[in-house]
Amino acid sequence: MHIADGVLPTAVAAGSYIVTLAGLGLSLRTLDQRELPKIAVVSSSFFVASLIHLPLGPTSVHLLLPGLVGALLGPTAFLSIVVGLFLQSLLFQFGGLTALGANSLMMGLPALVCGFLYRRLRGTSKKSNALVGSLVSGLGVLLAALILAFFLATGGESFMGVAKIALVAHIPVMVVEALVGGFVISFLYQVKPELLGVTLARENV
């Protein structure tokens, strides 16, 4: 779920913008300029994947993907996510323009954490990769939901109820995403293992 315009206090919206811009600046500066077009093209596939709805009982959910993006892109995930969110806001109004900073942090930070954890824990077998992939995918959603709840709670006591409900509403998404994430990682491990753990930017040892 993306935060719409007008929900956050202006100071929080502006503050998260500044943090996001700083993060972007840092990413752009540390990355190899030549890799940027590649990250952009990969971002479009994440964008497309996040638009696909999966059936869940009488309703359907779509994936948030912070965990998977983190696992696949590592440190460059933040950049990829900001680009994707900007276009989502621009094209579909998924997430408000003034809340873009907050939304970027909500998805980008979990991606970085998940990317780090996946690389640390994934091990060398297909099973451990799939399991860790599944865990970080679920964790990504959980962290995103927590950050969302935190942002909502900055609006004051009136928003506590919404924050709690948003948190609960993310539980089914978390389960679905953990399962799909595990299947994606296990598929990639079987078919194209070099994609996992090989960042687009050359590996810094």
Partner: peptide, 11 residues
């Protein structure tokens, strides 16, 4: 769908 997404990412 997981395989489908995986294929999408590979491509």
């Amino acid at each position: 769908m997981g395989s489908g997404f995986g294929m999408l990412f590979i491509r």
